[in-house]
Simulated assay, not measured.
Amino acid sequence: MFGRGTKRELKSATATTAEMFGRLNLRIVHGGAATLHSIKVLQPKQVRVDSVDNHEKTKEFMWRRSARLAKVVSRKLAAAVKSMLQPPPTA
């Protein structure tokens, strides 16, 4: 959101990247089960920004915010890995 009062307008942009790098640390316990220890995703090197106005300031703003993309990706991956590593329910 930019502006104040009645002149407030919403600007949006989409940032995409082809690849991201990171490290996933798992621990193996005595029973052979794996548990997630830590996950770290790095900021993407190249980000393509698509926006309606296609302005340089929009691209710069999205690049500065791309570190937050890494945090979101690491949270999503952590949730996915934890659900995959849970032991099957016993009946």
Rank of each mutant, 00 (worst) to 15 (best):
M1D: 09
G3V: 07
G3I: 04
G5F: 00
T6R: 12
T6V: 10
T6E: 13
K7Q: 08
R8E: 08
R8V: 10
A13P: 02
A13N: 06
T14F: 02
T14L: 04
T14Q: 11
T14A: 03
A15E: 00
T16R: 05
T17A: 00
A18E: 15
A18C: 09
R23Q: 13
L24K: 01
L24V: 11
N25A: 15
L26E: 03
I28V: 14
V29G: 11
G31I: 03
G31C: 04
G32W: 04
G32Y: 04
G32A: 08
A33L: 07
A34F: 11
T35I: 09
L36F: 04
L36E: 03
H37A: 12
S38I: 06
K40W: 12
V41H: 02
L42E: 14
P44M: 00
P44T: 00
P44N: 00
K45S: 08
Q46G: 02
Q46V: 06
V47E: 03
S51I: 04
V52M: 06
H55K: 13
T58P: 00
E60D: 13
F61W: 08
F61R: 10
M62D: 02
R65A: 12
R68D: 13
L69D: 04
K71C: 03
K71G: 05
V73I: 05
S74R: 07
R75P: 00
R75S: 10
L77Q: 06
A78S: 14
A79Y: 08
A79Q: 12
A79T: 04
K82R: 13
K82M: 08
P87E: 15
P87A: 15
